[in-house]
Simulated assay, not measured.
Amino acid sequence: MNNHEIDYKLYGDDMQFVEVELDPEETVIAEAGSLMMMDEHIRMETIFGDGSNQSGGLMGKLLGAGKRVLTGESLFMTAFTNEGSGKKHVSFASPYPGKIIPMDLSEINGKLICQKDAFLAAAKGVSVGIEFQRKIGTGFFGGEGFIMQKLEGDGMSFVHAGGTIHKRELGVGETIRVDTGCLVAMTGDIDYNIEYVGGVKTALFGGEGLFFATLRGPGSVWIQSLPFSRLASRVFAAAPEKDVSKGEGSVAGGLFDLLGGDRR
């Protein structure tokens, strides 16, 4: 194997975290800010890109980091290495309610295409790159933009998505239509396109958006029931419109009155 071979265990149901077991000198990479806890004798190091091309010289490191910028991620990732004499553990938490999906890349022909913010952690050696959508319509209206993340290698990767996750196996020529925001990941052999919903009345009053994703097999597709964008829009819509810091029943409002301030 080219990647470090790591063991893992998932905890929780709706707010999951993954515990990765590292043998001496084994390393796992993760997105910045995803760490939950780690044992002693684990060294944490910030690296350019994903660490898969650290021997490729300065230009290789810059190209790897630049790919992450195109997907909206940071230039840097964090590597966690076991420098102790026995097995050690490091845990990574999901950023919002949902599921963590373990992906053994060696079982899916070494390639996985996923939405740009789905990646959580992986064994060192897994390449976290970009996947350009070749069709213009897919790029402009695909919900995830013209660029998606591409995970390549033969090790374990961990992907996070919202709500309940459903894996669908598509046969040769079998097609399903999915809301663009609900698509989490797919194997590299899936044909992915965008189609217009059709009909003025449906487009204006259907409430489901103007476009949906058409996925054609063979291959595997992972679908989420609660995209983060949908969750965020509901929270934003339910937020109070007035300034709560100066509300009638707030501590700040009472203090303002006590000091004789004008709350107009």
Rank of each mutant, 00 (worst) to 15 (best):
K61I: 05
L10P: 03
H41T: 14
I42T: 09
G60N: 06
Y192T: 02
A161E: 04
E26A: 12
R134S: 13
A123E: 09
Y96K: 06
S52P: 10
M59R: 15
K135H: 09
M148S: 11
E26V: 00
L63G: 06
A161N: 01
G145A: 05
Y8C: 09
F140P: 00
W222K: 03
I165D: 01
A239C: 07
I194Q: 04
D262K: 13
A32M: 12
G64S: 10
G249K: 14
K242Y: 15
M1I: 10
V184I: 14
G49A: 08
V172T: 10
S225L: 05
A185T: 02
P227L: 04
E45G: 01
G86P: 00
D7N: 14
F48W: 12
E195D: 10
S91Y: 02
T27I: 14
M186Q: 08
M59I: 15
G60V: 03
M1N: 02
A30H: 03
F205N: 09
N3C: 15
M36E: 13
G198N: 09
R68Q: 14
M59L: 15
V18A: 02
S225G: 06
G219D: 00
G110H: 02
L258P: 03
A185D: 00
K88P: 03
T175K: 15
G129F: 08
H89R: 15
R234W: 05
K242N: 14
M37T: 07
G145T: 11
G188P: 07
T27Q: 06
D104E: 08
V28A: 14
Y96F: 15
D179K: 01
G249V: 12
G72M: 03
V128C: 01
G209E: 13
I108G: 10
T81Y: 01
G143Q: 06
V235P: 00
D13M: 10
D257S: 06
L215M: 07
W222L: 15
G162A: 04
S34C: 07
V172W: 00
E169K: 04
G125V: 06
L204H: 09
V221E: 04
G137I: 01
F205C: 08
H166D: 06
Q224P: 01
G209M: 11
Q16M: 15
F211P: 05
P95V: 03
L255A: 12
L120K: 07
G143N: 03
G12V: 13
F140N: 04
T187E: 15
D7C: 12
N3P: 10
G57L: 10
L75R: 04
A122T: 01
N109M: 13
F205D: 04
A79I: 00
M103F: 08
E25V: 00
H166R: 11
G142V: 03
G162N: 03
T187Y: 04
S55A: 08
G209T: 07
I100E: 01
L75F: 14
G84Y: 05
M156G: 07
R43L: 13
E174R: 06
G206L: 03
Y96V: 06
S245W: 14
E19K: 13
H4V: 08
G142I: 07
V244I: 11
E131P: 01
L255R: 12
R216Y: 04
L151P: 08
G249D: 09
